[in-house]
Design a binder for these strands. Structure first.
Ligand SMILES: [Mn+2]
Ligand SMILES: [Mn+2]
Ligand SMILES: [Zn+2]
Ligand SMILES: [Zn+2]
Lengths: 139, 139
DNA sequence: GTCGGATCAATAACCATTCCTGATTCCGAG
DNA sequence: CTCGGAATCAGGAATGGTTATTGATCCGAC
């Protein structure tokens, strides 16, 4: 267990319970960007007694203290991510798979936005949708 | 009524019914980026018999034939927009107001993304959240 | 005017997520 | 160690936005 994660729990006042640890491990085991339901199914393999609501609770605590992130696409439940760096994720509109897109510079985007609005910018998320190679072949 | 809109209806095969026209007019009357519920309330002022479901149907037809667009933020219902150009909208996390942000160039964004992924990119939407000046003062 | 398909209003159903409640676990003080 | 209060939990009900269903109504081609 990463000591940075322990730090964030200590600072936040939340405790690192077994359920929250299990949810974190599920995020690691899944191959990236699972939904709450996906996490729930993974956690249940080891602890069949957990409830879906508990997973939602744990995910929201983990996100609040900055251990995980989340992104939202239309027509898909929220996807969770251990990668906290600003980066691009693309979702396949056919099968729902989510992949990361490296190599697109997003560095100055938020500051360019801030320069052009009187709002105080809190977040800027690029939501990308497309068709994955597998689905394109099978179409 | 814009003749371009008539064209899009003719090409699509959908008919331009009074309800769809009323929804379009509501989009114009609202000061930008209303939710389906907002549109419903405006339409109801002139025609109290419409149902919310009818508004959803009309909005989805209008979006399908490319007359209106929509954007999704967390913790907010879908917002609809007559502005079909690629552009930025920022939503205030306090009061929910949505404003446009001119001046940020997004032109090459989609092609830069396409260059860095094997997915076939369909859409790239920048979802921006912040605090509007009014809410910042009243905080 | 008649017919058949499109569209409509109304309502039920859906699904992701949140809320609520009572039970359990955790943790520090004594 | 033991007790009591607080945090967290599981389970289920409730919520809110949206979509599907259904029977009625409209409209255009003939
Ligand atoms: Mn990612
Ligand atoms: Mn806009
Ligand atoms: Zn796919
Ligand atoms: Zn505001």
């Amino acid at each position: 267990m990463d000591s940075g994660i322990r730090d964030k729990f200590r600072k936040s006042g939340y405790t690192l319970t077994s359920q929250r640890r299990a949810v974190l491990e599920a995020l690691t085991e899944s191959d990236g960007h699972p939904s709450a339901e996906d996490v729930y199914l993974i956690v249940k393999r080891k602890n069949p007694r957990v409830a879906l609501g508990t997973v939602y609770q744990a995910l929201s605590v983990l996100e609040e203290i900055g251990v995980i992130g989340s992104k939202h696409w239309n027509e898909s439940p929220t996807r969770y991510d251990l990668n906290l760096e600003p980066h691009l994720d693309i979702r396949c509109g056919h099968c729902g798979a989510v992949s990361e897109i490296p190599g697109v510079g997003l560095d100055d985007l938020e500051s360019r936005i801030q320069e052009n609005t009187t709002y105080q910018v809190k977040s800027a998320t690029l939501v990308v949708e497309g068709v994955c190679p597998k689905c394109r072949r099978n179409q």
